[in-house]
Simulated assay, not measured.
Amino acid sequence: MKRLIDVLASGLGLLILSPLLLGLALLVLVYHGRPVFFGQVRPGLKGKPFKMLKFRTMRDVFDSSGNPLPDSERITKFGAFLRATSLDELPELWNVLKGEMSLVGPRPLLMEYLELYTPEQARRHEVRPGVTGWAQINGRNAISWEEKFKLDVWYVDNRSLWLDIKILFMTVKKVFVREGISADGHVTKEKFKGSSK
């Protein structure tokens, strides 16, 4: 049932939102140049790699040595708007349609984190990663990594259709009030370096 809902909702969403997606793609092209999409390999179900798509929110700007400048200097005002409204996440509906993601589940993080998880934290990969999730409506980037992973594992153990519906409705509310978009002193969140426990 969950997969059926994912297919129907993502397919319908891509169809209905196609004018918005096209408009955003053109604006990203104007403000950030090519490519319009930011694709990055992330771990999916059971840790299987897939390429997650998002709208680009940063410019390609480098220092004199050819190294990318910090995120805070590369993100544009339009990019910050995309992140604040979560519009940069809309291309992930394509990942949902393909079966690489679900509408609801733990957010797909970086491949390099896989070897840093405790066995309990790694359980977040027992389900497909989501466009939104339990951790996103309970703090997003404003909570610690340990708190985020506990919420992810709680979702794995308690997932249900009704919980997914609640998370989707709460996500819409969070987007409007723009809570937890970034951690203190960071554009999004500092990198996970492993748990101390």
Rank of each mutant, 00 (worst) to 15 (best):
S10D: 04
L15K: 05
L20A: 09
L22V: 09
G23T: 00
L27P: 03
L29K: 11
L29I: 01
Y31L: 13
R34S: 12
P35F: 09
V36T: 06
V36Y: 07
P49F: 13
K54N: 06
K54S: 05
M58E: 07
F62M: 15
S65F: 14
S65D: 15
P68S: 15
T76S: 14
F81Y: 02
A84S: 14
S86R: 12
D88V: 01
L93H: 00
L93D: 02
L93C: 03
K98H: 11
E100A: 12
M101P: 01
S102E: 03
L103K: 07
R107V: 06
P108C: 13
M111Q: 14
E112H: 13
E115W: 04
L116W: 09
Y117W: 06
T118W: 09
R123D: 09
R124N: 08
P129W: 03
G130F: 04
W134Y: 12
Q136D: 00
Q136N: 02
G139Q: 05
E146M: 11
K148N: 01
V153T: 01
D157C: 04
I165D: 03
F169K: 12
M170Y: 13
T171M: 07
V172R: 06
G180W: 05
I181M: 09
S182K: 14
G185C: 13
G185V: 07
G194P: 00
